[in-house]
């Protein structure tokens, strides 16, 4: 379980998160939504120990994340950033191997276990056929799956994604989220992700938190958070919230100003 207490954080002298508190339970599919610049990525960075908060604490299973060693933490939480600069021409399997580094010796020389682990994950995600391909030759969707493979070989209970679907088409977007859901339900992973797509958030997340200017505006189930009053106020626009007839989950439709009657 993750507990975030009175967390304030930011960059240099610009405070972005203001005294955020929330709990994330084991096996949650936890979505973070909010406007651009609201502090979603900052929150994720603090959770992943990438930046130190100004004040407040983050506890994982009752243990302050500052007390973890780098290696220990890399075995507990893995992170998939928004975009990744891959100007280097690693092959897919070389690239996935980075995820095994927390388990390797000082010179990071892979053992048979490490090779077995990446083989298993590549089978699971059905990407064995491009194991030897250059990472830069892949399409956006394929790249995202390779990145997921990389966090999976890290074998952490908590996986953090920063907008995993932001530049994918709707098909790839659903594929990725289905994989995450699968991991969440069948492999008991705690998934924490930020999303721009409110409909995807409503459809897949078991819990949502809506952030406004660095503070929590509302948290709870998708039905509780995705109400038109909060969404309209936070995003400063007009929307209609309906229920998906198949999944019974809420979805949000934008309304054009000129279309309003």
């Amino acid at each position: 379980m993750i507990r975030i207490e009175n967390l304030s954080a930011g960059y240099l002298n610009k405070e972005i998160l203001k005294k955020i508190s929330c709990d994330i339970d084991k096996k949650d599919f936890f979505g973070i939504i909010g406007k651009n610049g609201a502090g979603k990525s900052t929150l994720l960075r603090v959770l992943c120990n990438l930046i130190k908060p100004y004040s407040g604490n983050v506890f994982i299973d009752g243990r302050n994340i500052n007390s973890f060693s780098r290696k220990e933490f890399a075995k507990t939480v893995s992170f998939l950033p928004q975009c990744i600069d891959t100007s280097l021409s690693f092959t897919v399997s070389e690239f996935i191997m980075f995820g095994r580094y927390p388990y390797m010796n000082i010179f990071k020389i892979p053992s048979d276990d490490d090779y077995a682990a990446i083989k298993k994950v590549m089978n699971f995600l059905c990407i064995k056929n491009f194991a030897e391909k250059n990472i830069n030759e892949l399409s956006g969707g394929e790249k995202q799956i390779v990145l997921i493979a990389q966090v999976l070989v890290q074998e952490t209970d908590i996986i953090v994604f920063d907008e995993p679907t932001s530049h994918l088409d709707i098909g790839n977007q659903n594929d990725i989220l289905e994989i995450l859901k699968d991991l969440n339900e069948k492999r008991d992973k705690t998934i924490i992700l930020s999303l721009h797509d409110l409909n995807a958030a409503g459809e897949f997340c078991s819990k949502l938190i809506l952030i406004e200017n660095g503070s929590v505006c509302r948290q709870g189930t998708a039905e509780e958070v995705l109400n038109y009053r909060d969404i309209e106020r936070v995003y400063n626009t007009t929307v209609v919230v309906k229920t998906n007839p198949i999944s019974n989950r809420p979805y949000v439709i934008p309304v054009s100003k000129t279309g309003k009657r």
Binding site: R45, C48, L50, S69, R70, K71, E72, F73, A74, K75, V77, S78, F79, L80, P81, I84, D85, T86, L88, F90, E94, F98, G99, Y101, P102, M104, F107, K108, I109, P110, Q154
Partner: peptide, 23 residues
């Protein structure tokens, strides 16, 4: 030469490289 794997992850750069338990 033995540090080749570490040099790989350093050359990857960015935030991602900081999440593999390496300083």
């Amino acid at each position: 030469s033995l540090s080749g794997n570490i040099i790989n992850v350093v050359s990857l750069g960015g935030e991602k490289s900081k999440t593999f338990g390496i300083n």
